[in-house]
Nucleic acid binder design. Sequence first.
DNA 1: CTGGAACTGTAACATAGCCGACAAATGTTT
DNA 2: AAACATTTGTCGGCTATGTTACAGTTCCAG
Lengths: 225, 225
Amino acid sequence: MYEDLKYWYLRDHKLFRTLSFGQIKQLCIITGFKKAQKGEIIYFSSSDLPRIFLLKKGNIKIVAIDEDGNETIKDIIQKGDLFGELTLEADGQSNEYAKVLSDDVAICSFLMSDFEDLLLRNPSLALSYTKFVGLKMKRIKNSYANLISKDAKTRLFQFLKDWAEKEGVRTENTVVIENYLTQNDMAQIICTSRQTATQLLNEMETNGTIVYSRKEIIITDIRKL
Amino acid sequence: MYEDLKYWYLRDHKLFRTLSFGQIKQLCIITGFKKAQKGEIIYFSSSDLPRIFLLKKGNIKIVAIDEDGNETIKDIIQKGDLFGELTLEADGQSNEYAKVLSDDVAICSFLMSDFEDLLLRNPSLALSYTKFVGLKMKRIKNSYANLISKDAKTRLFQFLKDWAEKEGVRTENTVVIENYLTQNDMAQIICTSRQTATQLLNEMETNGTIVYSRKEIIITDIRKL
DNA sequence: CTGGAACTGTAACATAGCCGACAAATGTTT
DNA sequence: AAACATTTGTCGGCTATGTTACAGTTCCAG
């Protein structure tokens, strides 16, 4: 890959914006670049060196498989998000894979060890990164708190609200979301059965709260959600 | 506080062990020290400057109150743990207080801003700290995953197992835990009602799995848990 | 030692949401 | 178009767990 391309790919993330041109150019730690199509499954082979990934384009979901073989959606990664071993600790035991949700994705990656060196040389970046991880932790805490104390309906509402806020296109009080998730996906995210999710979505549709299709979800009035 | 005492208080935490004698001595960022008795409530007044706390002695629980007035146990802090704004981002909105569980506690604290300066001057400490926060995140993720996918019984078992591992005194396969929690506390931690927790504990007692009293919990055979 | 507060024990009842089962609709491949 | 795979819709039964309600125990302060 050309040096300037590498540079561009890093600079684009807000985490690295605090660094000067020169600093970033020096780094050029990106070591991998990959494209993939919808439905493709990407494994984080534990045999490989631990990496941190940056999703440049598209959407993917991170799925974990527990001892009993149950699949849980750990995370939905969107364009511009960092993912992988963000805690900078390789852990061999976790069994995860990523599945491409959008039509195609572009992912670049760098080695965890390179990133560590980088942090050691740039204390202010290290501080930003710490705050970044902290923020991530706070988000997780919040979403779990929701999962536990609220019922399925409230969880679905909250999920849609969050989704609309992150990705929805708003005109007046109507929000349109490009729907790259199946009802099953949503069910897994809000931790309920597919059936309950279906039921709730249909209920919302008859209520006129949303218009649902496989392509998009229209929230007729975001204020009422 | 005397300089060398400050030194001692910091050095005692594993996070700071990587630093040399001299380095730590230079820092001396501790700015507060406090003792409290059982049952006392400590507020993290948001008016005050954001701080990071280090529990030197005893146990406390962090309780959060949501909009509806429901109380949830966020965390149990034990001797040697850091707590407070670990993410280095002050967030005014969260409504939390700490309650002393053991007979008495000793807490020392330093200002978040001082700590940030420290991290900026010690990149390797920053890196350790990031990993530390990451580890914390991983733990939280795990415990929440448990909460969501397992039933109340399994959750209680897991909780006891963790507790035993962290604080229990083991002789052969018997583990004795000093019990500073009420059944209600445990119920809140494993996110169930007090009644269910009571029922499960009694069930375990009649099974001979544990011997329960307000003072201590004896796990007769840790391997069977 | 006594009264009250906090904790623990037990039961009946209600219900959210999981599960299995199957049908209909939509999308994809050949 | 046909055959197949994936996604959505619907239903009734079942179970774990929350809720309400009250009684018994332990603990501590005065």
